[in-house]
Write a protein that binds this DNA or RNA. Structure first.
Lengths: 127, 127
DNA sequence: GCGTTATCCGTACGGATCTACGGATAAGGT
DNA sequence: ACCTTATCCGTAGATCCGTACGGATAACGC
């Protein structure tokens, strides 16, 4: 058989210990769903720009990022679908901002802290 | 022309403001490279298990996660390549642990905080 | 030495994801 | 009315990723 049952753990105590406090697959999937939304250079920078500038339209976002509008539109599509960004239409311009219920920990830890730390770190993993 | 130059920003002040503090594409790419390594249910749980159990071999990890060994092997391959996990061979068993230079902010914010928060939140985005 | 066990590697397949384009919509300006 | 501008949508093609399989390696027990 290819996929051996591996019936006997090598360190049963540690397996039990890990098993007991591991997040469930369901919890992990929820969190990683959010994280992978942030784990993209364009989306991360869109969120960051909205965080510091309050409200921006697609064209201005593209201008600020130096990206093309297609990329930004696609990024916003996903972020809106996930409920992280909300849009407000005024005339023919659509203004985007972070949703009022944007997960605070995500903003604190990823947008603020991690970005700042990365900024001050030369190139930790160029190997 | 399809991709209009969008020469004139709608809110130049905010564009300039965002442009001035935005992480560079390079910085963003470095950070999102790390984040996407964590942004996967199996890899996140592997890292979490190693964090709480210090050191585990592939088979025991698979057992603890309820995943098959192929998945865990693949996860470890990426994590080792990125330098987040190191392996120690003892006999025919390979023990894995978090690298001594595992980025502390990542461990603090993502593994500890975010996982804990997600654990205590029912189902924030089931819409 | 021989079979078994723990693990890794290479590869091929299927699926998800991103990009780029053409066209649709809708609001102004003249 | 007509042209332009701002934005969105659908789709097709490319590309990236994870899974699963077959086989290789290496150590241990008999």
């Amino acid at each position: 058989m290819t996929e051996s049952p591996h019936a006997h753990p090598i360190d049963g105590a540690r397996v039990a210990h890990a098993r007991g406090r591991l997040p469930s697959l369901d919890e992990a999937t929820r969190l990683t769903g959010l994280l992978s939304l942030i784990a993209d250079p364009i989306r991360l920078r869109v969120l960051y720009a909205l965080d510091v500038s309050e409200e921006l339209c697609v064209g201005d976002l593209a201008l600020a990022l130096g990206a093309n509008e297609d990329q930004v539109t696609y990024a916003l599509r996903l972020l809106r679908t996930a409920g992280l960004v909300i849009a407000r239409k005024e005339g023919r311009v659509v203004f985007n901002r972070l949703a009022p219920d944007f997960p605070a920990p995500l903003r604190e830890h990823c947008l603020h802290q991690l970005v700042e730390i990365t900024r001050r770190t030369p190139a930790p993993l160029t190997d």
